[in-house]
Structure formats: structure tokens, C-alpha cells
């Protein structure tokens, strides 16, 4: 299945957001996720299904002014 992850088209096996993070080697409790522009809290990732063409954002803390 093809997904757009952080603006990049990827072919993945995962069917949930939680599984996607594991498949792509994302680790840690400091990540924030969004599916098609809507926030998906960490607690809901295991239940959150991803579908062909979905846009996923995976963000983490960085410097800011």
C-alpha cells in the first residue's frame, strides 16, 4: 500500500498507524502524529487504520523561537 509519510511516497505493509511507526523504525514517546490533517493521539494509534493514499505527518520536538 502506498502512503504519503512526511511528504514522501512510501510503499508499506502496515495497516494501522501504530504498526506504521514500528515498520518505519520510529521509537519513543516524543512523537506526534496526524492522519490527513487531523491529530491522532498516541493512545489511538493502534486503532487508527491507514488506507491507500493517506497523508501521515510524524513530528518531533525541535528548536523554535
Amino acid at each position: 500500500m502506498k502512503l504519503i509519510v512526511n511528504g514522501e511516497a512510501l510503499e508499506v505493509e502496515a495497516t494501522t498507524l501504530d504498526a506504521l511507526l514500528k515498520e518505519l523504525d520510529y521509537e519513543g514517546g516524543w512523537l506526534a502524529t496526524a492522519l490527513n490533517g487531523d491529530v491522532v493521539p498516541a493512545a489511538e494509534r493502534a486503532e487508527c487504520r491507514v488506507n491507500e493514499g493517506d497523508r501521515i505527518e510524524i513530528l518531533s520536538p525541535m528548536q523554535g523561537g
Binding site: L24, G28, W30, L59
Partner: peptide, 15 residues
């Protein structure tokens, strides 16, 4: 002040 940005797969910058 802090911000959020896209994290690369397997990246540890944010951590």
C-alpha cells in the same frame, strides 16, 4: 519556546 518538525524515520534529533 520550542517547535515541532517532521522527524526522519529512525531519527533521534527530536529525542
Amino acid at each position: 519556546t520550542v517547535s515541532l518538525r517532521r522527524e526522519m524515520a529512525g531519527g533521534k534529533a527530536g529525542e
